[in-house]
Design a protein around this nucleic acid. Structure first.
Length: 444
RNA sequence: GUGGUCGUAGCUCAGCUGGUAGAGCACCGGGUUGUGGUCCCGGGGGUCGCGGGUUCAAGUCCCGUCGAUCACCCCA
């Protein structure tokens, strides 16, 4: 077999990176549960019609096909890998509505797949950590303020640059554009969203083919440039002189989210009237999250409110959700060399073996340490002690345990300081910081 | 899907107008006869992405292909 080449877009982390990822996931999970979200895991595949129900994402979906399937066999042809966790969740809610209690809040940490060309922080297979709250018939607006606070807590505990949740409301854009009599509001949103990349002149140029006049474009840009971390943006929008009932509704909702967030967690959220994105099933509040200094890598956590995603017949389950792009977050920070783990293995102690005949007693020492929660492995061979220490050093294992010879006391050596002291496996404990690998970022 | 760039050791790369495949780091061994990291010496490792073509001769030139990467599209 020739040497396998990496598959772009399907990231696989090394052990030290995986330790960091697991630490991130543990923290995120714990935060979600502190807020009362129940865990859910859905299958990897959904019927294609479910996945394509909303929006233009069709070309991104990976379709499932059996290798042996012939042209007449279409049994799996209608299955695709999910490209986010919201659509499967909406389907799950409809399917199990009778067994769930509403409002229902759940978190879901799983892989998702998108058939796009990969770039830094963009993958074809990636992990998302998603929270959603759905209710029956109507969803109180305060949930739209709560979710970014949960995310704020989840991210605040991680060694990453300061996150800012940028918030907008589709109704603001939709209403404003309606008030301006623009024919294709969706297309205008997509152009406006590129403001940072192509600048005001670029936006104006791209709006022109959409039938937007220069004076309309000025107002569109005027709206897009509004940004505030409190409710003051409402007046700025009013000054542009566009009126529409939907716009009023959106402004009120957006102001409520920003004010609530500001009261609980100052500086976390900012109304940013240029952001429009997220998938196109969003109907109200939309979120994007940037890391200070790393804005160019895009959003590491996005979401929004959707009123029509989970509905069938007379049943309606409006929801609001936010997804942390765990793979993107890690990929970007790894790329910046901004994260480190103090070791590449969980092991805190390596028990040195002086001779193979002693291995059994070394195993007993290890068992005693493990019984007290200290991750321990026994040296692979009775090599020279220098080699055994090197084995530990390579992996970042902080302690090497030397069984005492012929009745002498055991000793344990901190190989970073070189300090070696007598110890008993029945009661020795490393300092808390050495118990599990330390994950650090250059940003904290 | 469209366009640009790039494929040489595990990693970073050198290899001139074609002439027998190299360095640093990493890894292994020894100096160091059972307590590492420094230093010195030695060693293993490559169908030069793959296939074809031109040539006496191709890592080098040409064509194709695959892969990677960046941008667009879109998005976590």
């Amino acid at each position: 077999m020739s040497k396998p080449t990496p598959l772009s877009g399907f990231p696989e982390w090394l052990p030290a990176q995986r330790i960091i990822e697991q630490r991130f996931l543990d923290h995120i999970r714990r935060t979600f549960e502190l807020y009362g979200f129940a865990s859910l895991e859905t299958r990897a595949v959904e019927p294609l019609d479910q996945l394509l129900r909303k929006g233009e994402t069709s070309k991104e979906v990976y379709v499932l096909r059996r290798l042996q399937a012939d042209s007449t066999d279409s049994s799996d042809a209608s299955l695709g890998l999910h490209f986010d966790l919201t659509v499967p969740f909406a389907r799950f809610v409809l399917e199990n509505a009778g067994k769930l209690h509403f409002p229902f809040r759940r978190y879901q940490i799983q892989k998702a797949w998108r058939g796009e060309r990969p770039q830094v922080g963009r993958y074809r297979e990636f992990t998302q950590a998603d929270i959603d709250i759905v209710d029956r018939d109507t969803l109180p607006a305060h949930y739209e303020a709560e979710l970014p606070l949960v995310i704020g807590d989840a991210l605040a505990g991680l060694p990453i640059p300061k996150p800012t949740v940028l918030v907008n409301n589709r109704k603001v854009l939709q209403g404003f554009y309606q008030g301006l009599d623009l024919v294709d509001p969706e297309a205008v949103m997509r152009v406006v969203d590129k403001l940072d990349k192509i600048g005001p002149a670029g936006v104006t140029a791209e709006l022109s083919p959409l039938g937007v006049t220069d004076s309309q474009a000025r107002l569109v840009l005027g709206l897009a440039e509004i940004s505030a971390d409190d409710g003051s943006f409402v007046d700025d929008v009013r000054k542009l002189g566009v009126s529409d009932p939907l716009l009023d509704e959106g402004l009120a909702e957006l102001a409520a989210v920003v004010e609530a967030a500001g009261a609980h967690s100052p500086g976390l959220c900012r109304a940013e009237l240029k952001i429009a994105r997220g998938l196109d099933y969003y109907t109200g509040t939309v979120y994007e999250t940037q890391l200070a200094g790393l804005e160019r890598y895009g959003s590491v956590c996005s979401g929004g409110r959707y009123d029509n995603l989970a509905s069938s017949g007379n049943d309606r389950f409006p929801g609001v959700g936010l997804s942390i792009g765990v793979s993107r977050l890690l990929g970007v920070l790894f790329g910046e060399n901004a994260l480190s783990a103090s070791r590449s293995v969980p092991t805190a102690v390596l028990v040195a073996v002086s001779a193979e005949e002693d291995r059994r007693s070394c195993d007993r020492i290890a068992a005693q340490l493990r019984a007290r929660g200290i991750a321990t492995e026994v040296s692979p061979s009775a090599a020279k002690f220098g080699k055994q220490i090197k084995f530990a050093d390579r992996r970042g294992i902080p302690y090497v345990w030397f069984p005492g010879a012929e009745g002498a006391a055991d000793t344990v050596k901190d190989i970073r300081s070189g300090e070696q002291v007598e110890a008993s496996a029945g009661n020795w404990t490393p300092p808390a910081v050495d118990l599990i690998p330390v994950v650090e970022g250059t940003f904290n």
